[in-house]
Design a protein around this nucleic acid. Structure first.
Lengths: 236, 236
DNA sequence: CACAGTGACATTGTTAACAATCTTTTCTAC
DNA sequence: GTAGAAAAGATTGTTAACAATGTCACTGTG
């Protein structure tokens, strides 16, 4: 099972530092849109939420700012990034350049275990969607793209896509319609199907289409969701 | 002129923090192979080299580790990353996926000023190469790829390619022949030429060829250059 | 009533001392 | 002379106090 540690790094268990875990938790919270853009990430609140000292928190925030997911304003503190419209366009342009190729690579590299894993993932996604577990649905939806990179067997791309997916969540939170979810399950199923059939061109094309779908649901008028209470969101 | 601040971020001048400058300097030093893989980056040496306190240095090192360019070993300190053979393959696979598309985008977006800028850059590259300024040649060579992203007008890709180019320098330092430079100037000229002629397919193809050339000069037998003296390398 | 100024409070940024770990040297035993 | 152990030294990691800055409520004035 192991429901937690989703989107986790490809690292050996004992090797993880505490701030990596914090980074990962905040990453996830942003991906499933529990932390909307602009949310203030105050040090004291994070200390309380994670039960750790200020140093760890500050390191984690610095790491997150390096991933463009958190904005550090001098003497003001850390905030969940609020991507501009240009940034949003750039993120999706990058995804359209990367991910169809990744899908094609995934076709080349996928073995039976990978195919089975994709199937299991789709089932989870579908389940979460059907049972109305919105947060799970959003997170799994983003995780699908990362999973594809893992099937493609390229850790560099895993890192990149993880960052792009997270930023996409922020973008959707800002510029997407109220009910918009990260991805439509049907698209994912189509991509996975193409991979199962070893049709690289189709997989790439479906991925391109999928990303275009998401992009098409954005309106770029700069709305913003209200910031929520940090401690309750991140409490374990 | 402005010979320094090459490969600099797309940021407003006054907005830069001190650690960003440090990060950029180390990035550059790695790109033109003055800092070989495995070099120990001791805090005290860096403090001396940059004339700043330990805190700044530690923040910079953490940022660099987030970009996979520096490896942080607990209680041992920071080291210039030594990419494994698998990592090397992943980096070039990612570049082959990204950069041909970027070249194509650059063709679509390039205006006259961009074309002129590319021309000037090539001249500088050629000049450095002819006059035996090896470090400049290597740095400019890497910078060409970043410049292309800037022409393509996508800051997300700029960040990605900057990281990939830096890691490529490490890879070449470890697995490349002794005289191997980052890129051959001819390839760059051919790419720039295709852009000038607005031939997107050709630009993409030349980029693919170019990256394949570099990749072909690697042998993956895990040699390592000796570590050099930090303070003399980074002193201003 | 609106607004500028002032002060108290809260939050972030920095520094320096301390603790823990690793490295190197030295000493002893074989 | 070599190998192992122990201690001294150097380096990194952590903590806590302090300084600087920003925020907000309150007050007085126009």
């Amino acid at each position: 099972m192991a429901p937690s540690n989703t989107l986790g790094t490809t690292r050996i268990a004992g090797d993880e530092t505490a701030e990596d875990a914090i980074v990962e938790r905040i990453f996830e919270a942003i991906i499933d849109q529990r932390l909307p853009p602009g949310t203030k990430l105050s040090e004291s609140a994070l200390c309380e939420a994670f039960g750790t000292g200020r140093m760890r928190i500050r390191r984690a925030l610095l790491l997150l700012s390096g991933r463009e997911v958190v904005e550090l304003r001098a003497n003001r503190g850390a905030f969940v990034a609020s991507p501009s419209a240009e940034e949003a366009a750039a993120v999706f342009e990058a995804r359209l350049l990367l991910e169809p190729g990744i899908a094609r690579l995934a076709v080349e590299r996928a073995d039976d275990a990978d195919i089975a894993g994709l199937g299991r993932h789709l089932e989870q996604e579908y389940d979460a969607h059907r049972n109305g577990r919105r947060n799970d649905a959003i997170r799994l939806s983003g995780q699908f793209h990362v999973l594809l990179c893992q099937v493609a067997g390229n850790d560099v791309m895993v890192r990149m896509v993880k960052e792009l997916v997270t930023r996409s969540s922020l973008i959707i939170g800002m510029y997407g319609g109220p009910g918009t979810v990260n991805c439509r399950d049907d698209d994912h199923a189509a991509i996975a199907d193409a991979i199962r059939r070893q049709d690289g061109d189709k997989a790439a094309q479906m991925m391109r289409l999928h990303l275009t779908h998401i992009q098409g649901n954005l309106d770029l008028s700069g709305r913003r969701r209200p910031a929520a209470d940090l401690v309750s969101i991140l409490r374990h």
